[in-house]
Design a protein around this nucleic acid. Structure first.
Lengths: 185, 185
DNA sequence: CCACTATGGAACAGCAATGTCCCGTTTCGG
DNA sequence: CCGAAACGGGACATTGCTGTTCCATAGTGG
């Protein structure tokens, strides 16, 4: 197999991708020049790997989708009560770091809703349904509300994690504790 | 007092301001042309009332600050337990509508943090401190976490309110119920 | 009816971001 | 050492937003 030439292109491509995620997580309107600079790459090189802005955005979306999928895998959403699954889901998703900054962006470059066909494919919604059925999640809180509330709470925990405050490393624990009390059945 | 000439300018000024809040609540990068169109006004007229973009942003910030202040007034943050005050605060803030879209924007055009000197002036933080003291809010949840969590939960409720789903009118109730369970001491 | 003011439209130049092209340089395998 | 591939920088035209100016029109008060 071809070793070096392909490896080099793949590596710079990944550098640009990582830089885009990191930069756009903080400012989703940052210019391609800023992304290239953050990647330690010339703007020409960036355009060589990604013909236009849309191509880079698509690649970023695919990368985030992949990382999100891995987090869902790690969360083992097929064992335990609904709440236990939800708890693992939250901790795994929170560990995604800058990816969350893109998901929660205003005019999101990355939209998890576009990753699933309908409610039946959304691992998140399925977990909540499970919790409603086994009674580990309050049944007087509608599905849509729980989903939205957990997402925005994740956002809050993400903000705390990426801050420089003393709570930086406890965000996950605080999130789980608060959600447990707020949503338990 | 001067009636018509001044009234007209004041009215168009307010039209532009309202349009800016509404448009930027959905897309904080919308062009001035888009704002002018939404206000039913020529771009020239917009630039006549607000010399440049910064001036309009400042005016929007001031307007949001004023509406936020009125909401805080209505919330009567000086009576009841910390949790009761927090409950009223949330419901009043949630009623601000599009203003919340600006507050929660990514690179916020409007930042409530810039409205207060320090923690001692932040009505929100004071309410949480009160709740910690009178035991109506869980003392094992740090101030910063509670503040962030309530803000992001407000964001979630705001998303539900502005959606077209059946929960549109219950967002406030769901928010209060969830926060009560999640944060109560 | 007559000024006066606010408005709207058009045209203009400035600016930043984007996408493209060209060319010299670096890197790496043969 | 040599050649191919990847890279970096500079230059260019294009595009959309911005701020400005000029002029014609509509609405208002005297």
């Amino acid at each position: 197999m071809p070793s070096t030439p392909l490896d080099r292109t793949a590596r710079t491509r990944r550098d640009v991708l990582d830089a885009a995620i990191e930069v756009w997580a903080l400012d989703n309107t940052a210019s391609l020049g800023a992304v290239a600079a953050a990647a330690g790459v010339g703007r020409t090189t960036l355009n060589r790997h990604f013909p236009d802005r849309a191509a880079l955005v698509a690649a970023v979306d695919a990368e985030c989708r992949a990382r999100f999928g891995q987090a869902v895998e790690r969360a083992e959403l097929r064992s335990g009560t609904g709440w236990e699954r939800l708890r693992r889901f939250c901790l795994e998703v929170l560990s995604l770091g800058p990816v969350l900054g893109l998901v929660f962006a205003d005019n999101a470059l990355v939209d998890p809703d576009s990753w699933v066909e309908g409610e039946e494919d959304d691992p998140f919604a399925l977990v909540v349904v499970q919790g409603h059925q086994d009674g580990s999640l309050a049944t007087d809180l509608p599905l849509d509300w729980v989903v939205t509330h957990v997402w925005t709470s994740l956002f809050g925990a993400h903000l705390i994690s990426r801050s420089d405050g003393p709570l930086r490393h406890e965000a996950g624990q605080l999130l789980v504790r608060t959600l447990d009390r707020g949503l338990a059945g």
